[in-house]
């Protein structure tokens, strides 16, 4: 907790940090509100129209729907993590923290606390949004679907951990943010290319994609039935385990790098 307090001292007066958290909150709420209020319809052969995307924000569907867009909006908080770590390298305060008495592992663990702390803050926003949308919906409260809160936590650890690793390895915010965004955008393209040339479907095993898969694309019930696919779906537990293995890997890589590097 001492290390978390230290991170709080570092960030509590940092405006950029609040701006990014604010952007996450505003856009997360707005995009979901937009989905709730909108109709993305397509014409059917009978001349009618069906809504493609789910706008069901009642319990219990609200958690899964929110979770999908939560993953998108998390990028703002990922950037906050990157900046808070690269600032240490930019101002060379990582050196001073060590000189002042932190061990290299303490320094790493202070950032682990930061990631955990931010993940909890994001989850609270997710929970609040879930309850507000849910209680405004048609159904009574039920605990069904609340496993999605845990999935959101796992996804948060994976995204924020990945961002932290990039920041530690690249040390420069511009480079780390560019690579982060590029990876988020092009991860699927890479997966598809590998699939095309090797016929291997590795989508379950890619760093961020394995967590993205925890939340299905929020299609409406009608659309789901219309495009029902055969084949067995990968169990959710697999995604959780793979995501957590990646989180451990990020930690291990940074710990190894910090233990060897000249600061």
């Amino acid at each position: 907790m001492k290390l978390l307090k230290l991170e709080w001292y570092k960030l509590k007066s940092y405006r950029t940090f609040y701006v990014l958290l604010g952007l996450f909150t505003v856009f997360f709420v707005l995009i979901n509100y937009g989905m709730l209020e909108s109709q993305f319809g397509v014409q059917t052969s009978g001349g009618g129209s069906i809504n493609v995307l789910s706008n069901n924000y009642s319990f219990p569907e609200v958690w899964a729907n929110l979770g999908y867009y939560y993953g998108w909006m998390m990028i703002f908080v990922c950037i906050a993590v990157v900046i808070s770590i690269t600032n240490e390298f930019r101002y060379r305060t990582h050196r001073q923290n060590i000189i002042d008495g932190l061990s290299r592992n303490d320094f790493l663990h202070s950032k682990v606390w930061l990631v955990l702390g931010l993940n909890v803050v994001m989850l609270l926003i997710y929970l609040m949004a879930g309850f507000v949308f849910g209680f405004a919906g048609d159904n009574e409260f039920t605990t069904d679907g609340m496993e999605n809160v845990f999935y959101a936590f796992v996804m948060g650890m994976n995204y924020l951990g990945f961002s932290a690793m990039l920041a530690f390895l690249l040390k420069r915010s511009g480079l780390a943010i560019t690579l982060l965004l590029a990876f988020v955008v092009f991860e699927n393209v890479i997966i598809k290319l590998i699939q095309k040339f090797t016929e291997l479907d590795l989508s379950d095993y890619f760093p961020l994609e394995c967590s993205d898969s925890l939340f299905e694309f929020p299609l409406s019930q009608t659309t789901k039935m219309a495009i029902a696919q055969g084949g067995e779906a990968t169990p959710v537990l697999t995604y959780i385990v793979i995501s957590l293995v990646y989180v451990a890997l990020y930690y291990g890589v940074v710990r190894w790098k910090l233990s060897k590097a000249d600061l």
Partner: peptide, 20 residues
């Protein structure tokens, strides 16, 4: 080496935190 966006006082609070 200090946090540029923080005051002298806030920077020294961090040092005090590290040194317990």
């Amino acid at each position: 080496n200090f946090y540029h966006y923080l005051s002298a006082e806030a920077n020294l609070k961090i040092v005090a935190g590290i040194k317990e």
